[in-house]
């Protein structure tokens, strides 16, 4: 028992405050992608030809735009621009309320805003989520699990993962949504009582990720399931997921008050 207490004291207090600044992330961390179209050379379409993912494209206005939801955050994607016009910032905040908000001409996304008053009254202080994994690699799930550890401590915001969709206020979908899980995903969605939230975590759930185009997957959450929060990344850093959830619940102020007990 003495050993136990001694070890506990030695571990100290580890929970980090939210919001976090990206300054604590390492120099090489690949966060939100950014684009500077002024560096484009006339008629150059090399990024589109060379990028392994369709995260960069020509928008309706004829100018390039960047889609954080299709980005795998790989070095190859930004290297596809020979003029240094695409790079990764160290900004980990990039969760949005709509799919369109992930697409922009500069890479700046319109971050998710708090739910309306009524939904916040329902979910704001206690949100129970059910995880559905549908054709993933287990990367996003690893980060969802990490949210429960003492560092990120998701439960201080009243968010918990529960064992049954019938106990849940919403579902978290990871994976490219493959044929073999489509039915189970729909059943889980239907079993969750209304009103419910749907959160799409990771490039796969948003756009199919690395599996996009495979005949076995449906390139992300089907259109007829309304998504309330889109969290890009491959996988998203736990801080990205935490930031999105806290924004959605309108509890940004609350995480600041975490103090060490030492």
């Amino acid at each position: 028992m003495i050993d136990l207490l001694r070890t506990r004291l030695r571990q100290g207090f580890r929970t980090i405050p939210v919001p976090q600044t990206s300054a604590d992330l390492p120099e090489r961390f690949r966060g939100r992608p950014a684009l500077d179209a002024s560096r484009c050379v006339d008629g150059c379409r090399e990024c589109i030809e060379r990028s392994p993912t369709p995260f960069i494209r020509i928008g309706p206005e004829g100018v390039p735009e960047i889609d954080a939801g299709s980005c795998l955050f790989s070095p190859e994607e930004v290297a596809s621009c020979p003029h240094g016009g695409i790079w990764y910032t160290r900004d980990h905040q990039m969760a949005t309320a709509t799919r369109e908000a992930l697409v922009s001409e500069t890479g700046v996304v319109h971050l998710a805003r708090a739910l309306d008053e009524k939904s916040r009254r329902l979910f704001g202080r206690s949100l129970r989520l059910r995880s559905v994994v549908a054709g993933s690699c287990n990367g996003c799930e690893g980060e969802l699990v990490a949210l429960g550890n003492v560092v990120f401590d998701l439960s201080r915001f009243g968010v918990q993962f529960v064992a049954s969709p019938r106990h849940a206020d919403g579902i978290v979908i990871t994976g490219a949504v493959n044929t073999n899980m489509l039915e189970a995903l729909r059943k889980t969605y239907d079993a969750t009582p209304d009103p419910k939230l749907v959160i799409a975590v990771g490039a796969c759930a948003i756009s199919g990720g690395p599996f996009r185009g495979s005949p076995e997957v449906h390139n992300g959450v089907p259109d007829d399931i309304h998504v309330d929060l889109w969290i890009p990344g491959c996988p998203p850093h736990p801080l990205t997921i935490l930031d999105g959830l806290v924004r959605l619940l309108g509890r940004m102020e609350m995480g600041k008050s975490v103090k060490s007990v030492e």
């Binding site: 392994p52 795998l72 993933s136 990367g139 189970a184 599996f211 076995e216």
Partner: peptide, 24 residues
């Protein structure tokens, strides 16, 4: 239930993309 057709992707994708599939 997690079948995504990985081997076909590795066989058909170009090398830049294939390594991203292999990582997944």
């Amino acid at each position: 239930y997690q079948h995504r057709g990985v081997e076909r992707l590795l066989e058909t994708a170009d090398r830049t993309r294939a390594v991203l599939v292999a990582e997944s």
